[in-house]
Design a protein around this nucleic acid. Structure first.
Length: 866
RNA sequence: GCCCGAGUGGCGGAAUUGGUAGACGCGUCGGACUUAAAAUCCGAUUGGCAUCCAAAUGCCAGUGCCGGUUCGAGUCCGGCCUCGGGUACCA
């Protein structure tokens, strides 16, 4: 017996590929190149889940396809291996993070190899390897030299439980993204990177990238460039000015009050004696509120009067200055001129505190709500002795008033960004040490020759009690001397965030052994940019923005030759767990899903597929009217719906696993997992096998012949070649697989299977299911791996059939079909007369007058009858 | 609230520039093979109606809802609804 047994062939070929270094990246630069990259995985303790191989399979298919099309392919993998989980585990168990990381990396590597991915394992990189982070540190020095890295005392998100500072992005609803622990604001000395200096270039660079529009938009929004004006308002009775940023200087005549953020410096200076207490109380309250609370309570605006007024430079009127937390200290100048007539937030606030609302742009009704349209409105009530905006459009008014403010020295055109500088240090052990020493309290870069600054050996990874990083406990390591002056020095004890290593790893893959820089310029020149980058949409903003930032800095340093690192980007869609049916019970009785939300103490009951049935648009409990919830959920440990790829490989083999992940649906779409559907692709592979192999002998089937292929066989093959080739180019892997299934279904009907046909088909299959393809390729008599044979060429000639099918419509409804000889297929008169004499069509023509005839060559005929 | 994306059989999903809606797969039903089962193979499978011994054929409805453009709409336009994702007072 020799039926299709993936377990017998897959490990065999995996070992073969390894031993023969089949997928070693070519060293010549003579062919066109293709750099296809997966997002850097973090080797977590739980191993791969089925979401990982989705993107990896897609890139692997592309890599294999491009190799067969004569490209030099760079298809590497490595490990983003610094990070909090290994450190937390170390704190708990005493196991050194290096050991945990090593173990996890080994597990990941093994799992990936079990899936038969064609990575060049000689180029594996690991961010925790000193030979790697030496260059991460080197890049930091470049940033430092360029003045893009600075120290600052900033209020940071301090998480006492984790003993570390978190980036804004790592804090969700006032809790840590990892672990869900509370986070508080605390001022600390931190390293910060001046990403804001690159804001404009990061914005412009997006234009030419072949990325999903939504991702580009998210980056643009994150950078958040807005153009407007800075305006200075004099504080009445003080020698102080309040500077505000506004995108709507045109509405200045409607500015009836001002607001300072509670943290604004001027608050304490100007507040009057009798308001001091109220203001102080308000500030304290605001400080206590987490970001979550601030937004949750956003319906109700709060604030307090400072007791002082400012002078509106346009109207000359005194307007009250208030403190309110709807103004953020971190954006613009931390102060605003409030124009309740034309800003929703100001309007809401003015209503609540009974402040004046003045209409200065005509077009709405400011007693009903703020009028914010900038297209339609015209200016009104905007006039003083010097200038009038009345009658102008918003755009004209902005121009005019900005110039006027500049003339009187109270304002200027200004640009603002939402993007803030990047908080770049963490109070952790398991990260890259900064190549910085402190001499006489001043930071000083470590000399390039002294890199890498390696992590000291430690066995206690907890932060000090006052929040100093764990490295502060490595006294011998911290205390060093300045090699230039011999003065005593202290090493920086913060470490870099996890983003650091992943900001440039794609460069290291080009020349992982290079010793004179992060990347060999020759190799960089050849391989960059990344032609195809596949990874999750969760990295839409941060990783991709940070990496682009570093890349641009490296471009300025002359290290890289391209302005952007990733030319084409695709996000694979998330794979959800199996669809679950949930019924709802109250006091032991079933209730419908749509009312379950409103009822208390509802019991949720998981139902099996055969306990429910479809009724209309909903699922109900069988033989009842009680609706149930039908939904696929995100895979999670707590829900217990995580699918482990190892189990699928054990049961069906890696080829089926790969095929199923691609067959589920379009790559970029969210899709529910269904293990029983894997049967479909597994059976398909079984049919491929049996088409070629005699199960009794294990040899080629007798039907596999040297005969020359028939016209029909060539047609079926070339239809498949055309579809699969086009679909791979479009990343429509699901329909490519379906085309191969169609081929096999057709081929199964043939009595003879000419070898050349089968060989071409096996080539098409090989990027998707490489193990079975390699095995069958050898059985068909080849000595070399299929990995580098030429991709089948599609020949249109074979597709042309003897007849052309025309559906015939009458008034847009199909009433019959006709087959016309190929040579007459474009003959309008002939086709129409054939169409009109079709039996079923005739009936319709008899009932009315033919008023119009539509003839679309090689497509369709439509006869319009009245 | 705002910004994206998506709604097609029992299920996952197919359908060039508008041109036969439901490819391919799962499931289900029926059949073949088998002592039996598994595996495999063949057939049916959107709903309804009609003719008919049957095979088959025809008709009507149908791609979230309402309306429009067109000889012809899953696809284009306008207005909604639902679900998923992102974002959160950014002046």
């Amino acid at each position: 017996m020799s039926s299709y047994k993936p377990e017998d062939i897959e490990s065999k070929w995996q070992e073969y590929w390894q031993e023969n270094k089949t997928f070693k990246t070519p060293e010549d630069h003579d062919k066109p190149k293709y750099y296809v990259l997966d997002m850097f995985p973090y080797p977590s303790g739980s191993g791969l889940h089925v979401g990982h191989p989705e993107g990896y399979t897609a890139t692997d298919i592309l890599a294999r396809y491009k190799r067969m099309n004569g490209f030099n392919v760079l298809h590497p993998i490595g490990w983003d291996a610094f990070g909090l989980p290994a450190e937390q585990y170390a704190v708990k168990t005493g196991t050194h993070p290096r050991e945990t990381t090593q173990k996890n990396v080994d597990r990941f590597r093994e799992q990936l190899q079990d899936l038969g991915f064609s990575y060049d394992w000689d180029r594996e990189v690991n961010t925790t390897d000193p030979d790697y982070y030496k260059w991460t540190q080197w890049i930091f020095l470049k940033l430092y030299e360029k003045g893009l890295a600075y120290e600052d005392d900033v209020p940071v998100n301090w998480c006492p439980e984790l003993g570390t500072v978190l980036a804004n992005e790592e804090v969700i609803d006032g809790k840590s993204e990892v672990g869900g622990f509370p986070v508080v604001k605390k001022p600390m000395r931190q390293w910060v990177l001046k990403i804001t200096e690159y804001a404009d270039r990061l914005l412009e660079g997006l234009d030419d990238l072949d990325w999903p529009e939504s991702t580009k938009k998210m980056q643009r929004d994150w950078i958040g460039k807005s153009i407007g004006a800075n305006i200075d308002f004099k504080v009445s009775g003080y020698d102080e000015e309040i500077r505000v940023f506004t995108t709507r200087p045109d509405t200045i005549f409607g500015a009836t009050y001002m607001v300072l953020a509670p943290e604004h410096d001027l608050v304490d200076k100007i507040t009057t004696e009798d308001q001091k207490e109220a203001v102080k109380e308000y500030q304290e309250e605001a400080a206590r509120k987490s970001d979550l609370e601030r937004t949750e309570l956003s319906d109700e605006k709060t604030g307090v009067f400072t007791g002082v007024s400012a002078i509106n430079p346009a109207t000359g009127e005194e307007i009250p200055i208030l403190v309110a937390d709807y103004v953020l200290v971190t954006y613009g100048t931390g102060a605003i001129m409030a124009v309740p007539g034309h800003d929703d937030r100001d309007w809401e606030f003015a209503k609540k505190f009974d402040l004046d609302i003045v209409e200065v742009v005509e077009g709405g009704d400011v007693s009903e709500g703020a009028y914010t349209d900038t297209e339609e409105g015209t200016m009104v009530n905007s006039e003083n002795d010097d200038i009038s905006l009345n009658g102008l459009s918003v755009d004209e008014a902005i121009e005019r008033i900005t110039n006027w403010l500049e003339d009187i020295g109270q304002g200027e055109k200004a640009v603002n960004y939402k993007l803030r500088d990047w908080l770049f240090s963490r109070q952790r052990y398991w990260g890259e040490p900064f190549p910085i020493i402190h001499v006489d309290g001043e930071p000083k870069p470590v000399r390039e020759d002294d890199l890498p600054v390696t992590l000291p050996e430690m066995d206690d990874f907890e932060p000090t009690e006052d929040g100093e990083p764990p490295l502060a406990k490595a006294i011998d390591w911290v205390n060093t001397e300045d090699p230039e002056t011999g003065k005593p020095a202290k090493r920086e004890t913060n470490t870099m965030p996890q983003w650091a290593g992943s900001c440039w790893y794609y460069l290291r893959y080009c020349s992982p052994e290079f010793e004179d820089g992060p990347v060999d310029p020759d190799e960089e020149n050849y391989w960059m940019p990344v032609d195809m980058y596949v990874g999750g949409a969760e990295h839409s903003v941060l990783h991709l923005l940070y990496a682009r930032f570093w890349h641009k800095v490296l471009y300025d340093c002359g290290v890289v030759s391209t302005k952007e690192p990733f030319q084409r980007l695709v996000h694979q869609g998330m794979i959800l767990g199996e669809v679950e049916f949930t019924g709802f019970k109250k006091d032991g009785n079933w209730i419908s899903a749509d009312i379950a939300d409103e009822v208390e103490d509802v019991e949720r009951v998981k139902l099996s597929e055969d306990q429910v049935e479809k009724q209309g648009d909903e699922f109900v409990i069988k033989d009842t009217e009680i609706t149930v919830d039908s939904k696929a959920h995100k895979m999670s440990k707590s829900r217990g719906n995580v699918v482990n790829p190892d189990d699928i490989v054990d049961q069906y083999g890696a080829d089926s696993m790969r095929l199923y992940e691609m067959f589920m649906g379009p790559l970029e779409q969210v899709k529910p997992w269904s293990t029983k559907d894997v049967d479909g692709v597994y059976r398909f592979l079984g049919r491929v096998w049996r088409l070629i192999i005699d199960e009794d002998s294990g040899e080629l089937n007798e039907s596999v012949t040297e005969a020359s292929p028939s016209k029909e066989q060539l047609k079926v093959l070339h239809e498949c070649i055309q579809k699969v080739t086009g679909d791979i180019e479009d990343l429509s892997f699901n329909t490519a697989i379906s085309a191969m299934m169609i081929f096999i279904n057709e081929a199964n009907k043939w009595e003879e299977h000419p070898k050349p046909i089968l060989e071409q088909f096996i080539k098409l299959l090989s990027p998707f299911a490489p193990h079975i393809a390699e095995e069958l390729w050898r059985k068909l008599g080849h000595d070399e791996s299929i990995a580098y044979v030429d991709w089948p060429e599609f020949n249109e000639e074979y597709l042309i059939s003897d007849t052309q099918l025309y559906p015939v419509q009458v008034n847009g409804k199909v009433r019959g079909e006709i087959h016309v000889p190929r040579e007459k297929a474009k003959n309008k008169e002939f086709v129409l007369s054939e169409a009109k004499s079709e039996e079923n069509v005739k009936k319709y023509l008899e009932d009315g007058n033919l008023v119009k005839e539509i003839f679309v060559p090689e497509r369709i005929v439509n006869l319009v009858v009245k």
